[in-house]
Computed example of a mutant assay.
Amino acid sequence: MSLDKYRHIVVEGPIGVGKTSLARKLAAHTGATTLFEKPEANPFLERFYLDPARYALSTQLSFLFQRITEMKQLTQAGMFEVNTVSDYLFAKDELFARLNLHDDEFMLYQNVFRHLAPQVPAPDLVIYLQAAPETLIERVHRRANPYERPISDSYLTRLSQAYSDFFYHYDAAPVFVVNSENLNFVDKADDFAMLMERIKQMRGAREYFNVGA
Rank of each mutant, 00 (worst) to 15 (best):
A77F: 07
N145K: 15
E134H: 01
H102C: 11
V10G: 09
N111T: 11
A213R: 15
M79N: 11
T135C: 10
A131H: 00
D171F: 09
D51N: 10
F80L: 13
L195S: 04
N83E: 15
P14E: 02
Y49T: 01
G204P: 03
Y147S: 03
E46K: 12
V11A: 08
F48G: 06
Y88R: 09
S62W: 00
F63Q: 03
M71H: 09
A131L: 07
H8M: 04
E181N: 15
V186F: 09
Y155L: 00
L116R: 01
P118Q: 04
T84L: 14
S58Q: 15
G18P: 08
E37P: 11
K38V: 08
A189M: 11
G13V: 01
S164T: 00
V10I: 14
N179D: 15
V112D: 10
L35W: 06
E81W: 07
I9P: 04
K38C: 08
D87R: 01
A97H: 04
F113L: 15
N182P: 04
L89K: 05
E207I: 03
V211N: 12
A32H: 03
T84K: 07
I127W: 07
T84N: 06
S21V: 11
L57M: 13
A32M: 06
V211T: 13
F65G: 05
P14T: 07
D93F: 01
A41L: 12
Y55E: 03
R7T: 10
K5T: 11
E70V: 08
P133Q: 03
A97R: 01
Y6W: 15
E94I: 13
G31W: 12
V112L: 14
F106S: 07
R142L: 14
A173V: 08
P150I: 05
K92E: 02
T69W: 10
F209S: 01
M1P: 06
P14R: 04
E12Q: 09
L159H: 02
D165E: 02
M107D: 09
D191W: 07
M79G: 13
V11N: 07
R203Y: 01
V82K: 11
Y88N: 03
F113R: 14
L156V: 05
A189G: 09
L95K: 00
T135R: 10
T30M: 13
V178E: 09
F106A: 12
V11M: 07
Y155S: 00
E37W: 10
D4Q: 13
A205V: 11
F185T: 13
K188T: 15
F209G: 01
L195F: 08
P39I: 01
T33P: 04
R114L: 15
S86P: 01
L101A: 04
A27P: 05
D190F: 12
E105K: 02
K25T: 14
D104P: 10
V120I: 11
F192R: 14
A132V: 06
Q119K: 12
Y55W: 15
P123Y: 07
A193L: 11
L64R: 05
L183T: 08
V140R: 00
N145Q: 14
L136M: 06
D124E: 13
E40N: 08
Q60M: 07
